[in-house]
Nucleic acid binder design. Structure first.
Lengths: 340, 340
DNA sequence: TTGAAAGCGCTACCAA
DNA sequence: TTGGTAGCGCTTTCAA
């Protein structure tokens, strides 16, 4: 079925009685080659099922047309690997990279080496790196940045960094979520999430800003630190209620998955949503509108984010400087919170 | 910050006053080289931040150590791209591939070319291909199989195929889901899903088998054909009820996301779950146990599946034949169905 | 508009 | 246990 020996560019050249230069140019659509010749050779290549050997052309051109995408996981729990939001970002990046002629090499921070620039760039595995999530420590990311490798990070674009960060306006998101609950007459609003995380800490700042602005007592700290998984949120809420009763009437969750965990813990205790407790999530994953009650949340526009991340990376691949970019967020009002 | 010119293996050899052969062997941990020499050279490489150029070694060895993973999407809706189950499979494959020394090149079926073997294998982009999902047509997959390229497919392992398929026992899953509802006293059980899909059609067979076995009337066909997305399921259920009222008391959903859409449509109409209608999903995505009520479902063991898929692929990469494998499934009883 | 030829950086055969 | 060296398949400079 398969042809005997894989044909090479040289073989194709012989078949067509032209030089390898000509075939190479023709297959790369180089306008130097007469259009007829180009088309003839392209047809011949297709006929013989020939594809350029990328290993060879990468070696020769010193360019891979591959981008490494690193899921920067905080811990190794299954849950965080499969957060639909992160995976959605990967999917959108894949689309966008393909469109720009790049392939996506998927990786995660649990890999053996910590020297990402060396592993991916020096070794010619990829031309650039996109890191999804700043995690709790940005050491590895900074190492890449210092190496000068093309790099874009999905994270918090507000804080200072010497590399290009694309991310939502997390502070504003936290603020809007909290304000929305306050305007729905919530008085004791819980912040549920991990303030050590760069992005989450910004959301927390927004939460504090809203409380302050509306003269709610900030000192009674209703911040419940918890990992960014549904399970952790579920456990935290359950434990908190067991210990202190229902001491809150609103929850600002740091992600939709966290909100989901909280929602379950509350519903199991027959606490009315939103009548007793209003909840706002963050991300707007597909599931948010399908929950019952549907989840009010802060939507992150992953499509635009992916487009901009790729743009910023391509800029660097072309030797230009890249900036950090703030992506607009939007409050999506649904049924898990009272309207005002 | 970065060293002037990127150092090569030859440069390193000169520095160490040994031959390039020795350095190459040392860095590849070849036991031919004396242990001391090996360690000395590895240390030197680390010190100079040297990584082997993969483009070069791939060209030389004709091996990439890369596996292309193709998400075989049925349509281009955002929803199906972001089905948490598919993405979970990708995540598990990534872990497993890394462990075996392979990298994961992520792709999807929306790419320009349809000749996957040519694009990935002939071009030396990857050594093998894993396709996630058989979709409605297996034409592209069969083309790869016929080319002789190493290939493993996540799909329905029961039906005949001339390539290695790894997948759950879908027929049994459909059967168990249906039986469970029947034993919970459901009399009119809806099958919600797309029977054109290879995997879904097996689940449908299991559904029919259970109905038959328990003497329920199979002729009154309660199969509601619907795309594998929450949105589609939601719309279908809503439309069906509008037209015919609540003519069913059980739903076998073809995936958890489909179950989620059905759940929402029912709850919005104040239909009790499981008192009025019992629901069983398929997949056991993370969210299933966090829904309210938590979702009874057929668990697919993606961890084992990923391990076996990689094993079967590696077999082929080593020139051995690979088989299809059936992964065990398990009914996870939760609160969306009545217990018996 | 096309061709000749050098060489990208590595590996593995053969020799020592 | 180590070294010399050919060559993987392509691109691109220089020449025609």
């Amino acid at each position: 079925m398969a042809n005997e020996n894989k044909i090479t560019l040289a073989g194709l050249a012989k078949l067509a009685s032209v030089s390898t230069s000509t075939v190479s140019r023709a297959l790369n659509d180089n306008p130097l080659i007469k259009k007829e010749t180009r088309e003839r050779l392209q047809a011949l290549a297709k006929e013989h099922n020939f594809s350029l050997n990328r290993a060879a052309s990468r070696l020769r051109t010193q360019k891979t047309n591959v981008v490494a995408v690193i899921l920067n996981l905080t811990d190794s729990t299954d849950q965080s690997i499969s957060d639909p939001f992160l995976l959605k970002v990967v999917g959108d990046l894949n689309q966008e990279l393909n469109q720009m002629g790049y392939e996506l090499l998927l990786s995660n921070s649990l890999m053996a080496t910590e020297d990402w620039a060396n592993y991916f760039i020096s070794s010619s595995r990829a031309d650039g790196i996109i890191v999804i999530g700043q995690g709790k420590s940005t050491d590895n990311i900074e190492k890449v940045a210092n190496s000068g490798a093309p790099l874009v990070v999905w994270g918090d674009p507000i804080g200072l960094s010497n590399y290009s960060v694309v991310g939502s306006n997390n502070e504003l998101g936290g603020y809007l979520a909290t304000k929305h609950l306050i305007e729905g007459a919530c008085k004791n609003i819980l912040f549920l999430g991990d303030p050590e995380h760069a992005e989450m800490s910004e959301r927390h700042k927004g939460y504090i800003r809203a409380l302050t602005e509306f003269n709610l007592d900030v000192r009674r700290n209703l911040t419940l630190s918890c990992d960014i998984t549904s399970k952790a949120a579920y456990d935290k809420i359950a434990a908190a209620i067991l210990e202190k009763g229902l001491f809150f009437d609103g929850v600002v969750a740091t992600s939709d998955m966290v909100a989901l965990g909280a929602l379950k813990a509350l519903k199991e205790r027959y606490i009315g949503i939103p009548s007793d407790v209003g909840i706002v999530g963050f991300d707007d994953i597909a599931m948010a509108e399908l929950l019952h009650p549907s989840l009010t949340t802060i939507k992150q526009d992953t499509k635009s984010a992916a487009k901009i991340m790729v743009q910023q990376l391509v800029k660097q691949l072309n030797g230009q400087a890249a900036q950090s970019t703030v992506i607009d967020i939007e409050l999506i009002e649904r049924n898990s919170s009272r309207t005002h």
